[in-house]
Amino acid sequence: MPMALRPEDVERLDLRAREVGVRIGWALSFCEAPNPEFVGLTADTIDEDIERHHIFVFGPSRVDGATVHEVELLLDDLERGARRIVPDEDGDPRLT
């Protein structure tokens, strides 16, 4: 049976994403998709009309223990510089 995260788990992961984002120069968020059985990591970008968009750089993926662990490892990698977020040819953030 699919699971959803508890609100405090979403808050904890989102806070960690925001902290890592500040360190690496991207506005990161951990969030649930419209269907709370799916989660992901987003990076914000601003388009030519000065509108903010949340672009998934990881996910959305079905919530399970492995997905949450992957997000935590990804945040560790981003913080250490082992992985990076770079703009693609359209300026949208992409994970490398």
Rank of each mutant, 00 (worst) to 15 (best):
N35A: 07
A33E: 08
E32M: 09
L73W: 11
I55V: 15
T45A: 07
R18T: 09
E32S: 09
V71A: 04
D64R: 10
D44Y: 09
L95V: 07
L78P: 11
T96L: 10
H69C: 13
H54L: 13
E48R: 15
F58C: 01
I85P: 01
D9A: 12
R94F: 06
H69A: 14
D14Q: 00
L5H: 08
P36V: 07
E48V: 14
G81D: 02
V22R: 10
L15W: 11
R83D: 08
A4E: 15
R16G: 07
R23Y: 02
E48S: 15
G91R: 00
G25M: 04
E70R: 11
W26Q: 02
D9R: 14
E72A: 09
P36H: 05
R18M: 13
I46P: 03
L95R: 04
P7D: 12
G91W: 03
W26Y: 08
T42C: 10
V20C: 05
R83P: 04
R23D: 10
L28M: 05
D47C: 02
D90L: 13
A33C: 06
F58Q: 05
H54Q: 12
P34I: 09
R84Q: 12
E11K: 15
V86T: 03
R6N: 14
V20F: 00
P93Y: 00
A43W: 04
E51V: 15
L73R: 14
V86A: 04
I55F: 12
R94S: 08
E79M: 11
W26M: 03
A33Q: 05
A17R: 11
P60C: 00
A43Q: 02
E48W: 14
E11D: 12
P87Y: 00
P60W: 03
D44S: 15
E79W: 07
T45R: 08
P7T: 06
T96S: 11
D14S: 08
F38E: 03
G81R: 05
I85G: 05
G91D: 01
A33P: 05
D90T: 14
E79Q: 15
